[in-house]
């Protein structure tokens, strides 16, 4: 039994329908627990006061905004190489979710930045990178919408995703070169393993991140299912028209 079995749309639908209810509940519980714990059961930061609590929305959404693009990159590659429809449709389904996560990260960042830096928006490299990422999401979604033939749309958006990823990374470095930042260092440094956030904040933050991750997976599975049903309807209609 291999993972590729679920590249079959019908099998994928069957599995995702079985997994989804549990996933929704788990994601909802994690997000609720993390947010309630984070908002009401953590002390104020000695420097940032209660504004620090927006971290429980800001960091998970920012993480998911980047992960969504990375997932689209992987699924686009799978579509181009192995031509599994589920893969292309999952990329299509993930894009609006990623775009919304980017908006949440930007909006919560602005709300956090106003009391901290005294400004809603600064052309800080991290903020700017996210804004550019949002523009890439917009272009990607618009290209999907504009092309009628679904296979051509999947092909072209995959090429855009690959080229766009290269340019997104280039933009990130260009932006760092262009302006030094105000943004604090990363809250969850994976590479060094050092912890910059104290335990009181860290545990609910991790719960929130798991919750957002699960929420993302659930949303993408659900939306992919919708896309598969749309394609199925389309295929049946096309066959019916030819048979008639």
């Amino acid at each position: 039994m291999s993972l590729w079995e679920y590249a079959n749309p019908v099998k994928f639908l069957r599995l995702s329908e079985r997994v989804l209810p549990a996933l929704w509940v788990f994601a909802g519980l994690c997000v609720a627990t993390g947010l309630i714990w984070g908002f009401f059961a953590t002390p104020d930061d000695y420097r940032q006061g209660s504004t620090v609590k927006i971290i429980f929305l800001h960091v998970p959404s920012a993480l998911m905004a980047i992960n969504a693009w990375f997932m689209m990159l992987v699924t686009s590659l799978i579509w181009l190489i192995r031509r599994h429809h589920v893969s292309a449709l999952a990329a299509k389904a993930a894009a609006p979710v990623g775009a919304v996560m980017t908006v949440i990260a930007l909006a919560t960042g602005a709300l956090w930045g106003q009391p901290m830096w005294g400004t809603w928006w600064a052309w800080d490299p991290r903020l700017t990178s996210f804004l550019i990422l949002f523009l890439f999401y917009l272009g990607y979604i618009a290209l999907w919408e504009a092309i009628e033939d679904p296979d051509t749309a999947a092909d072209l958006t995959s090429v855009l995703c690959l080229v766009g990823s290269v340019f997104a990374v280039l933009s990130r470095y260009a932006v760092h070169f262009w302006n030094q930042g105000l943004h604090q260092g990363t809250s969850v440094p994976v590479a060094t393993g050092a912890r910059t956030v104290s335990d009181v904040f860290f545990i609910p933050l991790v719960i929130c991140m798991i919750g957002f991750g699960m929420l993302f997976v659930a949303l993408v599975l659900y939306r992919t299912g919708t896309e598969i049903r749309l394609r199925r309807t389309r295929a049946l209609l096309a066959r019916g028209a030819r048979g008639a």
Partner: peptide, 27 residues
């Protein structure tokens, strides 16, 4: 090349190309 098959693709073309222009413009 991405948008050639799309009717009235001009606006979409700008939307796709402008983010790609960012690094060139910055440097």
């Amino acid at each position: 090349a991405l948008t050639v098959g799309i009717k009235r693709g001009g606006l979409l073309l700008s939307l796709l190309v402008l983010p790609l222009y960012v690094p060139t413009l910055i440097f």
